[in-house]
């Protein structure tokens, strides 16, 4: 039997992380095919509801990635997002969501290699904790 493969939702900002993913692709870098990418204009656009909705509808993990601090296309979108995630992550852990289930990273348009690394790391982490059960509707 083949190994269980997690399904991971990756929410990427248009200007940095999505371009980083693109670079990883055109540079023919290998990374796990477990992510499903949703492109958003900015990490500041990411409503915590998107993340919870993803978990509820059966994603085993969520990765949110934006521009490095200081590089936001909209000047401060990622700073605001950072505060939001700074509260969201501990709160999710508090209610009993496994710490590695939801992760955040900064990846620039030039960091194709880093993108591949982050995706590999997140996929490995989620494989370790296994399929999502908590907060999954109908589980």
């Amino acid at each position: 039997m083949s190994e269980w493969q997690p399904k991971i939702l990756a929410v990427l900002c248009n200007w940095c992380s999505y371009a980083g993913a693109d670079l990883a692709g055109v540079s023919r870098m290998q990374y796990p095919p477990n992510i499903r990418v949703v492109r958003v204009p900015c990490s500041g656009r990411v409503d915590p509801l998107f993340i919870l909705k993803g978990l509820q509808s059966g994603y085993d993990g969520v990765l949110v990635s934006g521009c490095h601090p200081g590089d936001c296309h909209y000047i401060s979108g990622n700073y605001v997002a950072r505060r939001r995630f700074a509260v969201l992550k501990p709160l999710l852990e508090f209610v009993g969501i496994e710490p590695d289930r939801v992760q955040f990273s900064w990846i620039s348009a030039g960091e194709g290699e880093r993108f591949a690394e982050v995706v590999s790391k997140v996929t490995e982490d989620i494989k370790k904790i296994g399929p999502a059960k908590r907060l999954v509707k109908g589980a």
Binding site: P69, G70, S76, Y79, V80, R82, R83, R84, F85, A86, V87, K89, P90, Q103, F104, S105, W106, V118, K121, V122
Partner: peptide, 16 residues
């Protein structure tokens, strides 16, 4: 209000 504000060099230990 805290969530409408930010500092540039803030603790980001939760970021990979």
């Amino acid at each position: 209000p805290a969530m409408a504000d930010f500092k540039e060099d803030e603790n980001q230990d939760f970021i990979m």
